[in-house]
Amino acid sequence: MKVFSKKKKNITPPLPLYGWFGDYSSWEDASCETGGYHQANILKKTRNALLKIRDREAIYERDSVLFDKKEYPFPIIACLLHIAAKRENTLRVIDFGGSLGSTYFQLKDFLSPLNTLRWHVVEQPMYIEAGRQDFENEQLKFYHTIVESMAIEQPDVILLSSVVQYLAKPHDFLSELVKYEVEYLLFDRTAFISNGHDRLTIQRVPPEIYDASYPSWFFNEMQFMEHFSHYTLVADFTSYVASEADLYIDGQLAGYDKGFLLQKNAL
């Protein structure tokens, strides 16, 4: 009598509901399956959260979520203080894609000893309107474009935190960015692919943050850095957000978040 053993079936685990998915050939194709970053609910939740920060009713906000304990991006703090130390304790920042001033509110305790701090957020029109209405102060201002901000004051550094991967044409933007010839460029929480070419995905956000989805790039790091041939890499660092050290696409480990401080080469 033969005894047959049951073979174990290889069961593929289901894909997660939230995170990054797909490999899209164009921004238009990805956009057709998402709501985009212009959704009013994102602004509404971010605004309500930051009003609590402004009014000292809450301690810390990131991506519209309130926390009862602050997480500090110490590499960003170190980079900004390094720049300020070379400028007689003054610092002028353009925070591109800086929401309603989230990073400003997160860092201002560390930057308060500076003699002068100017923080210009460049954002979408609806964020500019909300920012000017509820959050502007002597240090924090809101502008529609980098050019508009620079017409007011020349920055020491342009900060780009978790923003370039959400642009439709990021390489065109980076090519324009270097033409401003700002001495320092500071990237943070920028998504890179572990292997291969740039990859365009869809990011689905957990509803406890906000109900949204939008196209999201993962960059080839070497190609990304080719834009900065006239800059020197001062420092690079991993994301201060622990969950972003490793990034998964379609449930598979595929990328990572990283930051850089770049300084323009002397003529």
Rank of each mutant, 00 (worst) to 15 (best):
K70H: 10
A49R: 11
Y240A: 10
Y24D: 01
Y143I: 07
S161L: 08
L253S: 07
L174D: 08
K44N: 11
P125N: 09
F4D: 04
Y143W: 13
I83R: 07
I83Y: 03
N41V: 05
E123W: 05
S5C: 03
E61G: 01
E181A: 09
F110E: 12
K141E: 12
F192A: 00
A191H: 13
N89T: 10
S229P: 01
P155R: 06
Y256N: 06
L177T: 10
Y256P: 09
Q124R: 15
L177M: 02
F218R: 00
L174T: 08
H197A: 04
S243K: 12
S216C: 12
D156P: 00
K69P: 00
Y256I: 01
P13H: 04
R56F: 10
R92M: 06
V164P: 02
L117R: 09
A254Q: 09
Y72E: 14
A235S: 15
G97V: 08
R56E: 14
R87D: 01
L247Y: 09
A78E: 15
A266F: 10
F224L: 03
E183C: 03
K8R: 14
K108M: 08
A168F: 04
F260R: 08
L140M: 02
E57R: 15
I152H: 13
N137I: 02
L167S: 07
Y143Q: 07
T201I: 04
V157F: 07
I158M: 04
H38E: 11
D109F: 06
V234H: 06
R118H: 15
E244D: 14
T103W: 12
L140R: 07
P125E: 14
F228Y: 07
A40C: 03
V147A: 15
